[in-house]
């Protein structure tokens, strides 16, 4: 995940860097044509494209359940949610392109395995309750992260986040409604809901990335106003918000160490299994290969659509010329 300073990083003019950092300190927004250090540009391309890829790959575990949604109402919601995820991917690809890289290049990076995406999507969706849990936990965690990113120093990224945040609450609420319904259902439905919570809780905590002390990119991203809060702060906020929501529908978060600290007003939680985190990031999660294979197949199978659109456009152009 970490991008070390590379040999190819140009030596920047210290005066320009100082002026750039002063702009960020004053809370100004950096726009595409503004001067920016090459590292800032690169870190943004890395971070934004990973974010866009996550939206796109995130459609797969949910798409798995569209044909099996239990009612028409649930099916319409899930279809709309998955379509939103495609839109979110496009908002962020569009923002990333303003940094001088083509979307096609970014998609190639995803399809050939060079680019990363959020590891949470490398876990399988085994039951219908997983769809509820993804909306509640995964979109809930994403909202915490994206609310912060809506204040990022890079204008196109911040604006894409504002657009996304407006839509994300629907995702979370439809998920929570699924869970509340199952939790109030038959013993089998309750058990299914609790099982999904047990499997998704820890991976959702890992979505915020490594602990601050092990997050080599954080310092730079914070200094440049791309991140306004640390991974650990965001994770804590997510836990604090989620505990009460679980309690309200009588589901148990699978952490015996979870307890409220009166002094800090935080919910303390147990140790995260970082070995699992790194294993999944490095490609050995339950579904890494399946996800990439599905993306590649979708891209290959869409070839005829791209060919048809291109042929139609050139015929239109010919007819206009004639």
């Amino acid at each position: 995940m970490a991008t070390k300073p590379q040999k190819t990083d140009p030596v920047e003019d210290p005066a320009r860097v100082a002026e750039f950092e002063a702009r960020i300190a004053r809370g100004e927004t950096i726009e595409p044509k503004d001067w920016m250090p090459e590292r800032y540009r690169r870190q943004l391309i890395r971070m934004m494209s990973q974010h866009a890829h996550s939206e796109v790959v995130g459609m797969l575990p949910e798409g798995n359940w569209i044909t099996r949604a239990p009612t028409l109402r649930r099916k319409m919601s899930l279809l709309a949610k998955v379509q939103d995820e495609a839109g979110h991917g496009l908002y962020i690809y569009c923002g990333t392109e303003t940094l001088g890289i083509d979307r096609q290049e970014l998609i190639d990076q995803l399809l050939d395995g060079r680019a990363k995406y959020s590891s949470i999507f490398n876990y399988p969706t085994l039951t219908w309750a997983d769809i509820g849990t993804i909306g509640w936990f995964v979109d809930g965690a994403a909202i915490v992260n994206q609310t912060m990113l809506a204040h990022a120093s890079y204008g196109p990224y911040a604006r894409a986040m504002v657009r996304i945040c407006k839509e994300e609450n629907f995702h979370k609420r439809q998920g929570y409604e699924i869970m509340a319904t199952l939790a109030a259902g038959t013993p089998a439905q309750r058990a299914m809901a609790q099982d999904a919570v047990n499997r998704w809780w820890w991976p959702s905590l890992m979505m915020f990335g490594p602990s601050d002390k092990d997050s080599p990119n954080s310092e730079e991203l914070t200094r440049w106003g791309i991140k306004r809060k640390s991974n650990d702060e965001l994770r804590q906020r997510y836990v604090n918000l989620t505990v009460a929501q679980a309690k309200a529908i009588d589901l148990v978060l699978p952490d015996p160490d979870l307890r409220y600290d009166e002094k800090t007003e935080n919910w303390d939680f147990g140790a995260i299994d970082w070995d699992e985190f790194w294993r999944v990031v490095k490609g050995d999660g339950p579904c890494n290969r399946e996800r990439l294979a599905a993306r590649r197949a979708a891209h290959a199978e869409g070839e005829w659509v791209r060919a048809a659109a291109t042929a139609y456009a050139s015929r239109q152009a010919d007819e206009a010329a004639a």
């Binding site: 990363k116 490095k282 891209h299």
Partner: peptide, 14 residues
Amino acid sequence: MANDTTTTQGSFDS
């Protein structure tokens, strides 16, 4: 992550 480049890089990917 798998590294085989089986992606179809057709002429319409421009």
